[in-house]
Design a protein around this nucleic acid. Structure first.
Length: 443
RNA sequence: GCGGCUGUAGCUCAGUGGUAGAGCCCUCGGUUGUGGUCCGAGUUGCCGCGGGUUCGAUCCCCGUCAGUCGCCCCA
């Protein structure tokens, strides 16, 4: 007897049951439709990139999966390939490589899996889907896109009906200028600490600013006052200026963010908040940054983040290509709603109808009917149906429970006598078959 | 990468120093062409893996692997 391998899923590599997958596909459809409704085109890049492409930015704090051939000979030379950990880096490579074929501003979306070798946790996977949009232009990119990208994402999140959430935004130039005005040259370490304000509280943030960065008490206090500023409109600008700190970069950041939040509030209603503590750890962001959390579970992590970068493709081409992009952490989002039991009830089967058989002699009739239903020839509305024929003329009880358990809403019974009309049964409510049929056909 | 907790049937879990149980699920049945309920019957386990203590370990000890939570980081 051969050894059986106990089947189990690998932690951090999510997979769903058919009914859940059914909903997941609906979500992908919704996202794709809205991306395209704003004129974003689709591209797909390979799962792997040359390792040097992924590590071109220098600091490699992302856990990268490297792939290798099992039968590679010792000492055999082979290009080092690795699974991409996001879609921004592959896109940058793609844009640089195809620069002459693309029309700018280049607006693309990408919905693919990415891989990170981190420790899995609730909402943190090692393989997951991201749905990205980015706009890239040559030399200069209009600030309008800093508002359009998040507006699209919020429209999607509203459409997906995920419950209460808030997208927070900021502009890194504001903190950068603020720090410089306070005499702090390197503001990046400050961002890491300030970013944790909501999580660890003001006292701990201050403590870390004092001990880890050796800031003065006055500097720490100023930064704390600054980081606590929030507003749902451009009111933050006055609050920041009232702190009495002045710097050209600071002013530039404020002006940009005022434009972005005002534009945003015209594009999509609600869900936005300017928050000076949102700065993002990633240091390639140079302007507007975004982060999105569930209102009732802020510590779950961001489900949609991104920002503007001055020049992302500089490693691959001798041109300046600024961009702005934002990404839905699809798997993180989907799994949260799934785990909360808030997913719409999916179906185990996409079949709309099951044709049952009382006798094998009815199979040819069933095959013919199924063909018509699939082609939309049978129903007046021309709607194409997904149709399954039960595989054997067994007990009706078995055939019906098959339909019931797979979530197939309609069952068709062969006519009592050849040439007669088939009977239609609506599984959810057998008494309302006719009504259901009306709904089905659109009449 | 660091720290806490947990590993027993497909799932959720109980249990005892003498090689194991419940519920759910699943399969079949309760006769002839209408599912979900109910009733009956039945299947299922290297008690994570390796070593140690012991006459004997699923239970105690050590290690290991896996899972999970927190930190770090991030979608």
């Amino acid at each position: 007897m051969s050894q059986i391998i106990k089947p189990k899923s690998i932690s951090g590599f999510p997979e769903w049951l058919p009914a859940e997958r059914y909903i997941e596909l609906k979500w992908f459809d919704t996202i794709r439709e809205i991306f395209e409704s704003y004129g974003f085109c689709s591209i797909e890049t390979p799962s792997v990139e040359a390792l040097e492409v992924l590590t071109a930015k220098g600091e490699v704090d992302k856990e990268i999966y490297v792939i290798e051939r099992l039968h590679k000979e010792d000492g055999e030379k082979e290009a080092r390939l690795a699974l991409h950990f996001d879609q921004t880096v592959p896109m940058a490579r793609y844009v640089a490589q195809n620069f002459n074929e693309l029309k700018f501003p280049f607006k693309r979306y990408q919905m693919q899996r990415v891989w990170r070798g981190e420790r899995p946790q609730a909402g943190r996977f090692r393989e997951f889907y991201q749905c990205d949009i980015d706009v890239i232009n040559v030399d200069n990119l209009p600030l309008y896109f800093d508002a359009e990208c998040p507006a699209i994402m919020v429209e999607i999140l509203q459409k997906l009906d995920i419950g209460s959430f808030k997208m927070q935004l900021n502009n890194r130039k504001i903190l950068a200028g603020f720090c410089q005005a306070l005499g702090i040259d390197d503001f990046v370490p400050v961002t890491r600490i300030v970013d944790k304000l909501e999580k660890i509280g003001a006292d701990n943030v201050k403590k870390q600013l004092l001990t880890e960065l050796s800031l003065s008490d006055a500097q720490a206090n100023q930064i704390l006052s600054f980081a606590s500023i929030k507003s749902s409109d451009d009111g933050f600008a006055k609050a920041v200026r009232d702190l009495g700190v002045s710097h050209p970069t600071l002013d530039e950041g404020i002006d940009e963010l005022v434009f972005v939040i005002n534009t945003l509030n015209n594009l999509v209603k609600g869900n936005f908040e300017v928050d000076m503590s949102i700065v993002r750890g990633l240091d390639y962001y140079t302007g507007t940054v975004y982060e999105t959390r569930f209102t009732d579970a802020p510590s779950y992590g961001s489900i949609c983040s991104g920002g503007r970068y001055e020049d992302l493709a500089g490693n691959y081409i001798n041109k300046k290509l600024p961009g702005v992009g934002i990404s839905i952490g699809f798997s993180r989002l989907f799994d949260y709603i799934r785990a909360q039991g808030k997913l719409p009830k999916g179906r185990q089967s996409p079949a709309d109808m099951l044709i049952v058989l009382f006798d094998e002699s009815q199979r040819l009739w069933a095959i013919d009917l199924a063909k018509q239903l699939r082609n939309g020839e049978f129903l007046a509305a021309g709607r194409k149906m997904n149709v399954e024929i039960y595989h054997s003329a067994t007990k009706l009880k078995k055939q019906l429970s098959y339909a019931s358990e797979k979530g197939i809403p309609y069952v068709v019974f062969p006519p009592a006598d050849p040439g007669g009309m088939p009977e239609l049964k609506f599984m959810d409510d057998p008494d309302r078959a006719q009504e259901a049929l009306t709904k089905l056909t659109g009449f």
